[in-house]
Nucleic acid binder design. Structure first.
Length: 276
DNA sequence: CGCCTTTGACCCGCGC
DNA sequence: GCGCGGGTCAAAGGCG
């Protein structure tokens, strides 16, 4: 009852308005905070198909402690990702982001909200062991705000994609329980290719499958110089998604993980699975 | 000069 | 209704 097998990001952060999960030793299905409705599920999978699985990976240094997880073995890769809410339906656009922005712009001209339910854009978070807050991910971001977070001594930073037609946002904050962990939450989808992303055919076919993730704005295998400058160690050299399941499973005695493979198959695009 | 960060103010939703 | 917390705006300043 006390502690679940998995650790929600909110556990790490100390708070959160949505549920995201670390894939520490938790069943993979928890990664996706799917609603119970099949519809949601389908949409989620569709999304996965679009952007490639949001599998992010965090590499801890060997001596690093497992995140907030006493039972966690000393594996060095922890990932977390979760998607939530898809704005498939125009009716359910995120009125927090879209509407709010507009209403803000127009000031109090529209105190009345539409009766549409508030819904966030699709978003997911992942954790990265990093010394720098703002991880390079191939996109250009402009910081537009920073707020202190309750229950955390670390502020949360808000970034927006600088591309005009793209209103992808991301939030960056440090883990409340482990300051060495940076939790990045992406919201929305990029409507454009990465402006500074190298060609997909960098050096292996792996990358091609990683590109969709990049298109979504997630950090990935590609590591700009900054990474090394700042002692970041966000990703492995192998393709992220698969380590996600396998690494964890292989090194974590946690009984729950190994069983997740089945779900992985649901989550991972077929080409991903083939890679292994 | 243009772009970015900083930062205080403001707005909104939610719980009490 | 009020206060709190989260999210955003926008002016000001910094930097290349």
């Amino acid at each position: 009852m006390e502690r679940k097998e998995g650790m929600k990001i909110e556990d790490v952060l100390g708070n959160s308005s949505y549920s995201q999960y670390m894939v520490n030793n938790l069943p993979l299905q928890s990664i996706f905070d799917l609603s119970s409705s099949e519809d949601e599920k389908i949409r989620s999978l569709g999304f996965m198909d679009l952007i490639s699985p949001p599998f992010l990976e965090m590499i801890e240094s060997p001596e690093a402690e497992p995140i907030n997880q006493p039972a966690t073995p000393n594996y060095s890769s922890i990932s977390s990702a979760s998607s939530e809410a898809f704005n498939d339906e125009p009716v359910q656009l995120d009125d927090r982001d879209e509407n709010q922005q507009k209403t803000k712009k127009q000031l109090k001209l529209k105190p009345k909200k539409t009766n549409q339910k508030r819904q966030r854009e699709l978003r997911f978070a992942f954790m990265t062991k990093s010394e720098v807050d703002h991880l390079e991910d191939g996109y250009k971001w402009r910081k537009y705000g920073q707020k202190a977070v309750k229950n955390s001594s670390f502020p949360r930073s808000y970034y927006r994609c600088t591309t005009a037609s793209c209103n992808v946002k991301k939030r960056v904050e440090r883990s409340f329980s482990d300051p060495s962990i940076v939790v990045t939450t992406y919201e929305g989808q990029h409507t454009h290719p990465s402006p500074i992303m190298p060609r997909p055919n960098l050096n292996s076919s792996h990358l091609s499958s990683a590109m969709p993730a990049a298109a979504f704005g997630m950090p990935m295998q590609w590591t700009p110089p900054h990474y090394h400058r700042h002692h970041q160690q966000p990703f492995t050299n192998s393709l992220v998604p698969l380590n996600f399941g396998h690494n964890i499973g292989s090194s974590a005695p946690g009984p729950s993980l190994l069983k997740d493979h089945g779900l992985l198959q649901d989550i991972l695009p077929s080409h991903m699975l083939k890679e292994e």
